[in-house]
Every structure is written in structure tokens, then in C-alpha cells.
């Protein structure tokens, strides 16, 4: 469904993505993990058209994305839930969600879709007339995910949805992602929380300074000692801290 081949991305002289090959199959749940500055956000921004690639190709269901503007890419069925939420603070929860469906405005199914989001995140329904800026961080993250889902995407790009959230909320989001995926949406999840990513995704890519250094089924990667040391080392600490 999504296929990146030999992708290079630059910021001026900085080579942020180096010859990356990556694919997401129809209905698949794929994770991308890597340290700070590895290039994960850059990769997602390139897929959704916010950043132009230097070289290489990005194909989505046969269409070449590299020259399309973001609004055309959204229309093809890719929703990107950006790092740091980026909700519209001065607009209400409901307005935020309804704009999520901007690319298919006028569609008959919008009221039904909104109900579905409210069913997934009941908190958002309670707060639907509140402006987004007054929500808690976790609620804002739910709103950002809900807004992306309102686009009824075929492929959902998630950039560090667990960042800064309490473990309970992370668990809740994890359940939501699995469910959405089971209902047929393909997901590319970017995470630093490798434990969560590996648990959810069927396949995982590991990015280091712009290059894919490992890829495989999540099961294989979990048992890979180098991954253990580099990315899951904090596991016991993390769960320890949560208690």
C-alpha cells in the first residue's frame, strides 16, 4: 500500500533521511522506532507532503506522492497525527474534529463518524464545546488522534502519541490503535516507547541517524539482543517507575 524506495531527505546541508526503504501493507500495523533525532518525524512529514524529499520515491496505492501537495495526499487517504498534537487551541473540540474531515467535507457520513469518535473517546464528547486549549495534555492527544481518524484514512500515521502521557492513558490509546487497525486501517506508528510499539505492531523498523538499521517482525526484534540493549533497556525501569 505504502512503499518508500531509496528515500533521501535533506534540510539544507543536513542529510536527515538516508536511502530508506520501507513498506506498509494493506491492513498492516507497522512501527518505526529510533532515538531522538533519528529522523522519524522527518520521515512522516515527507510522507504527508509537509516536507519535500530530495531523492527516491514514495508510492501509495500506485500514486507517486513526492510531488503532491499535502492536501492531495490527505485526499488519497493518508491521515497524519503530528508530533506534539497541534490541535487548534482556540477552536472547540467539535470544530477540531469536524475539520479533521475537511478533505471529505459534505460527506453524508460525518455525523455518524463523529459519533464513532465520541464512542472511542467519551471524554471528547463531554468536552465538545470546550476550546481545545483548555483540555489536558492527554485529552488533547485523544483529540489529535480523533481528528486524524475523522479523515477516515486508509493509512494512519502516528507520531509519538504516547509522549508525555500517563501509563493509563498510553494503555487506553494502545487499545484504540489495535481496534482501529482491526477495523481495517493500516497504521504506521512512530514511537520512542519501543515497548509499546513492539507490542502493537506486527513489523517494526529501527531508524538510526536517518538509516534503517534493522527491520523484521516485532517478535524477532524483541528477542534481538542489540535491540534489547538499545531500545528496551529502560523497560524494567519504566514499569518500575510507573508503579
Amino acid at each position: 500500500m505504502l512503499e518508500l524506495t531509496n528515500l533521501d531527505v535533506f534540510y539544507g546541508g543536513i542529510h536527515a533521511i538516508r536511502a530508506v526503504n520501507l513498506r506498509v501493507n494493506e491492513g498492516e500495523f507497522v512501527a518505526l522506532i529510533g532515538a531522538n533525532g533519528a529522523g522519524k518525524t522527518t520521515l512522516l512529514r515527507t510522507i504527508s507532503g509537509l516536507k519535500r524529499p530530495g531523492r527516491g520515491s514514495l508510492r501509495f496505492n500506485g500514486a507517486e506522492l513526492s510531488t503532491l501537495p499535502p492536501e492531495k495526499i490527505v485526499a488519497l487517504g493518508i491521515s497524519h497525527c503530528p508530533e506534539g498534537r497541534h490541535v487548534w487551541n482556540h477552536m472547540t473540540v467539535r470544530e477540531n474534529l469536524m475539520l479533521g474531515a475537511y478533505a471529505r467535507r459534505g460527506s453524508r457520513s460525518l455525523p455518524k463518524d463523529l459519533k464513532r469518535i465520541y464512542a472511542i473517546f467519551p471524554k471528547l464528547e463531554e468536552r465538545q464545546r470546550q476550546t481545545a486549549g483548555t483540555l489536558s495534555g492527554g485529552e488533547q492527544q485523544m483529540l489529535a488522534v480523533g481528528r486524524a481518524l475523522m479523515g477516515a484514512p486508509k493509512l494512519l500515521l502516528l507520531d509519538e502519541p504516547s509522549l508525555g502521557l500517563a501509563p493509563v492513558v498510553v494503555q487506553e490509546l494502545a487499545r484504540v490503535f489495535s481496534r482501529i487497525n482491526l477495523e481495517g486501517t493500516s497504521i504506521l506508528l512512530v514511537e520512542q516507547n519501543a515497548t509499546m510499539a513492539l507490542r502493537l505492531a506486527s513489523r517494526t523498523y529501527v531508524l538510526e541517524t536517518g538509516s534503517v538499521v534493522k527491520e523484521g517482525t516485532s517478535a524477532d526484534l524483541v528477542s534481538d539482543p542489540s535491540i534489547r540493549d538499545a531500545y528496551l533497556g529502560g523497560q524494567s525501569l519504566r514499569t518500575g517507575a510507573a508503579r
Binding site: 531527505v9 535533506f10 534540510y11 539544507g12 546541508g13 509537509l50 519535500r52 524529499p53 530530495g54 531523492r55
Partner: peptide
């Protein structure tokens, strides 16, 4: 010229 560039 430096590759890439544009975008945002």
C-alpha cells in the same frame, strides 16, 4: 545547489 531544500 544543495539537494532537497524546499518543502516547508
Amino acid at each position: 545547489a544543495l539537494p532537497g531544500g524546499g518543502g516547508d
